[in-house]
Design a binder for these strands. Structure first.
Length: 850
DNA sequence: TGTTACTGAT
């Protein structure tokens, strides 16, 4: 429905509904006592009941009430049977409103329904509905709605509105719609604009805007006009749906009609706050004040919370002041949220003002507030000040919370040392007070017991700052004063000892832990297991696996893999394989990652067939090898020049539905480059782009190397130029491949350009690069350049020694440079000046004589 | 947690 339609109808002002009808709940609180009747009565605007003057009526009502209060209630009660025939709807209403318990009211209502000759009317239904909605009893209220519709009882438009509001307050939206439609359809009521207003309000929160607008149109079609109470739910719905423009339009319409009240203002203000528009919300609040409208307590509360959530504590504080000026009481929850907001903004001074203020008002700060205050301290002085100031009026539990926060806070500020001293102070080990920074006497006016949690926090802080020995000392001290370490303290100490490779001490702590009745956890065992694996101690690792099996713990596979990898690296492939076998024997299944490490170890020790057998074996045991496992084997086969087998494996992998990774492509490219199939390798690069497998720096390096090896240095340079445009950066290996590749292609001058670029990028080339460059300049008879490279090698101290096969190349170069007039004197001077291992001028015979 | 490129002789 378009808005202009509403505007048109707005031209006719609706005669204002009696405000008391709008909020019937508010009037429920107006209770008064009747002298003739002992139980207070409630007046409902839709009630037919009047404070009665009929003593017979009162007598019967009292009789019914006492029977229904009896425990256990018996429907066979003869007195009840005697009263049943005189039951009237007025009587039922009276009695219903006297019960404090919804259950008894419901029991009575149901009993009344079953009495012959008696039928509920809309007032008794509404009385029951009101009780159920206040007691938030969705199930019984749903059933009542159905019962009401089936009863075919006629109802006034106002009465129907009241019923709908009961349903709406429990968000029984479909029930509200159902009751409305049924009653209308059956002709039991002709809904008026008030009924519609109630319906709209009931459906405005969860319903779609379209549906709400449809209902409004339906109302207009029935000849009713729009008023303040039908527009308010629409405004609320637009606000909830975030339809900012439409909401504002409605608001402006309402303002023009003078329909805006505190409630309407509040709906909009709350929405602004929800949308994070704190300033707009605040502006609106000020305009509200201009109209002498005051928000209710709940709105203030929600807004203050919302403003703080938006980090606008400034406005939240202003609102807090307004709230108090308006005469509303404030409680701890508001102080909590405001202090929390200020602390988050690091406005400790303001937070402390509020803190003092609440204490003056007699509101006792709780642990939550204190924790917030302490956590926001940015220096130890503030912490101590707070500690001294707050601990006086704390109980035992509060003190524990307080000190836990203080220790956490000191650690978070990086003041582990201070935390340590504070803890020692509490323990009574004062040490040198002068540098402790704590005014001990003031702090310890109250006796504070040292607790395990304090030690846990401080020990953890010490461990995280690499003060393992200090932590161990503190641990010893705590046991000396009879404070029991907990599992976490043991675990953290054991873990850190393991990380520092202090395995024997770790085991000692493990024994302590068990002796003190604490079961080691999976974490404890894995700390030790990790350490044994790093040490490549297979026996130790297996012993731990046995322990873990007994405790029902799982070893962390990353450590098992680490052990396999390191064993393989140190040429102990058999031990690695045996370890995996033993692990399996202990009932722990190594994963594909650990097996891949073992297969790679076998491949690197040239046992490709064993790797293949292991692969087949684990496949037969139900493992599904992943791309990396395949890559490992493909690499092994390629390196062993078993090209077709490797290619078959690639096909097998694809057939199994695995997608080749960049590494797979790189392996293929490398293999084809090295087997002289350079064009196939280049084609593979294009395939990678098609398959959206982005080539890596390794792909490009491999190709540059391959192209240079095939004598296609120009193509290699093209690939080089491509790298940057593909968002990839060459690394030192790429540089070295290109420089040595160009040198080998007889282009040392171009190679030198790239060596300089490499140096500019602060990458250092390995010795072999200089050697290839030197050889290339010598081959091209460019002796001055050859000398330049040699000098650089000497300056860098990277002349290969006699054991290196490149040593001969250097000697050969020196010989050639000495033989040439252009360079001989420089070379002589260079060798004479520098102390180069194993190079002496005398070694060069007559060429070396001056 | 496991896989790929450059050092080079035939």
């Amino acid at each position: 429905m378009a808005l202009p339609r509403i505007s048109k109808t707005l031209r006719t002002l609706f005669k204002l509904i009696n405000p008391s009808i709008i909020n019937p709940y508010a009037l429920h609180s107006l209770s008064f006592t009747k002298i003739t009747f002992p139980i207070s009565l409630f007046y409902s605007p839709f009630s037919t009941q009047t404070p009665f003057n009929n003593s017979e009526h009162a007598h019967v009502a009292n009789g019914l009430i006492s029977i229904f209060f009896e425990r256990p209630f018996s429907p066979e009660n003869p007195e009840l049977k005697r009263l049943a025939p005189v039951l009237t709807t007025k009587l039922v209403e009276t009695v219903l409103n006297c019960f404090k318990s919804w259950e008894i009211a419901h029991l009575f209502f149901t009993w009344a329904s079953n009495q012959s000759g008696y039928r509920h009317n809309c007032y008794t239904y509404n009385a029951m509905a009101s009780i159920l909605s206040h007691a938030r009893q969705n199930g019984p209220l749903k059933a009542l709605a159905l019962d009401f519709v089936n009863s075919n009882c006629s109802i006034t438009p106002g009465g129907l509105g009241f019923f709908l509001r009961c349903l709406g307050s429990l968000e029984l939206v479909s029930e509200a719609n159902f009751v409305f439609d049924q009653v209308k359809k059956k002709g039991l009521c002709v809904p008026n604009d008030y009924t519609y207003a109630c319906l709209l309000e009931a459906i405005s929160k969860p319903s779609s805007i379209d549906f709400l607008e449809m209902r409004l149109q339906e109302m207009l079609d029935s000849g009713w006009e729009i008023n303040k109470y039908t527009l308010t739910p629409l405004l609320g719905a637009y606000c909830n749906a975030g339809q900012f423009e439409k909401a504002l339009n409605i608001f402006h319409e309402m303002r023009e009609r003078n329909w805006v009240d505190a409630h309407v203002f509040s709906v909009l203000v709350l929405s602004f706050s929800k949308w994070g528009e704190v300033d707009k919300a605040f502006e609106l609040i000020e305009r509200m004040e201009d109209h002498s409208l005051v928000m209710n307590e709940k709105t203030f509360f929600v807004l203050i919370n919302g403003f703080v959530r938006e980090s606008r504590v400034d406005k939240a504080l202003q609102l807090f002041l307004k709230m108090r000026k308006s005469g509303f009481g404030v409680d701890i929850s508001l102080y909590d949220v405001l202090i929390g907001g200020l602390c988050k903004n690091k406005e400790l001074e303001k937070a402390l003002c509020l803190y003092s203020e609440m204490k003056e008002l007699g509101i006792r700060p709780d642990v939550g507030i204190l924790t917030k205050l302490i956590s926001s301290c940015s220096n130890e002085e503030d912490i101590i000040r707070l500690l001294v100031e707050t601990q006086e009026d704390m109980d035992e539990e509060g003190i524990i919370w307080l000190y836990n926060s203080v220790f956490h806070c000191l650690i978070n500020m990086g003041l582990v040392g201070k935390a340590h001293v504070l803890l020692r102070t509490i323990m009574g080990i004062m040490g040198d007070e002068s540098d402790s920074g704590f005014t001990v006497n003031e702090l310890l006016k109250r006796k504070v017991r040292p607790l395990t949690s304090y030690f846990r926090i401080v020990i953890d802080g010490l461990l995280k700052t690499d003060k393992l020995d200090m932590a161990l000392c503190l641990f010893k001290d705590m046991t000396l004063i009879g404070c029991k370490p907990d599992r976490l303290i043991y675990n953290n100490l054991i873990d850190e000892l393991c990380n520092s490779n202090r395995l024997e001490e770790s085991y000692e702590l493990l024994r302590d832990m068990e002796d003190s009745g604490l079961e080691p956890t999976q974490f404890t065992h894995n700390s030790l297991y990790g350490c044994q694996c790093r040490r490549e101690n297979v026996a130790g690792a297996l012993e731990l696996l046995k322990r873990m099996r007994m405790h029902g713990h799982e070893p962390w596979m990353k450590y098992s893999t680490l052990l396999v990898k390191w064993l393989c690296k140190h040429r102990k492939v058999d031990e690695a394989c045996n370890f995996l076998h033993d692990m399996l024997h202990e009932g722990f299944l190594p994963d594909i990652v650990a097996y891949s490490a073992a297969m790679d170890g076998l491949i690197k020790s040239e046992q490709v067939d064993r790797a293949l057998r292991l692969f087949k074996d684990i496949c037969a045991r139900g493992y599904c090898p992943d791309v990396i496992a395949y890559n490992t084997l493909i690499n092994g086969l390629f390196k062993a020049k078993r090209i077709s087998e490797a290619e078959n494996l690639v096909n097998e992998m694809v057939m199994k539905g695995l997608i080749p990774s960049v590494v797979t492509y790189n392996l293929l490219i490398d293999a084809w480059c090295k087997s002289g199939d350079i064009d196939r390798a280049m084609h593979c690069l294009s395939t990678m782009f098609e398959e959206e497998r982005e080539p890596s720096v390794i792909t490009y390096t491999t190709l540059i190397d391959g192209l240079c090896a095939a004598g296609r240095s120009d193509d290699a340079l093209k690939v080089w130029d491509d790298i940057a445009s593909k968002g990839c950066a060459p690394n030192r290996i790429t540089f070295m491949a290109l420089i040595s590749g160009l040198s080998k292609c007889g282009r040392p001058d171009t190679a030198l350009v790239y060596l300089r670029k490499m140096e500019e990028m602060e990458m250092k080339a390995d010795c072999f690069v200089y050697i290839t460059l030197l050889s290339a300049f010598l081959s091209n008879s460019n002796l001055p350049k050859a000398y330049e490279i040699l000098k650089e090698m000497v300056d860098k101290g990277s002349i290969p020694d006699q054991t290196n096969k490149n040593h001969a190349i250097v000697r050969d170069a020196i010989l050639k440079l000495l033989a040439d007039d252009l360079t001989s004197s420089s070379v002589k001077a260079l060798i004479a000046k520098e102390d180069i291992p194993s190079i002496n001028l005398s070694d060069f015979g007559s060429a070396g004589q001056s």
